[in-house]
């Protein structure tokens, strides 16, 4: 599973990345977590609200700081 966190470096983007890492660790699953800050790459997903979470190429959430519990629901 490849999880991408799209964000421009704002506080919520960093918090979301931390929550995703925690969720992956707690569930003990195999996942590659990648932070995307490049605006061109972010726009290629059609996302206008940050932070966003993309799992295996699919946009799962936009403009929401998901808690680690909420993140788990998307795995």
């Amino acid at each position: 599973m490849i999880i991408k966190i799209l964000g421009s470096g704002c506080p919520n983007c960093k918090k979301l990345e931390a929550n995703v890492r925690q969720a992956v660790k707690e569930l003990n699953i195999e996942a590659v977590i990648e932070k995307v800050e490049n605006m061109q790459e972010i726009m290629a997903y059609g996302v206008m609200r940050l932070p966003a979470m993309v799992i295996d190429g699919q946009v799962k959430s936009m403009g929401k700081l998901l808690s680690s519990e909420e993140v788990k629901k998307y795995f």
Partner: peptide
């Protein structure tokens, strides 16, 4: 439209495109 400053650039680009 809900708007936070961290989203202003993607909104600007998205609208323009």
């Amino acid at each position: 439209t809900p708007f936070c400053s961290c989203s202003s650039i993607p909104i600007f680009i998205g609208f323009t495109r």
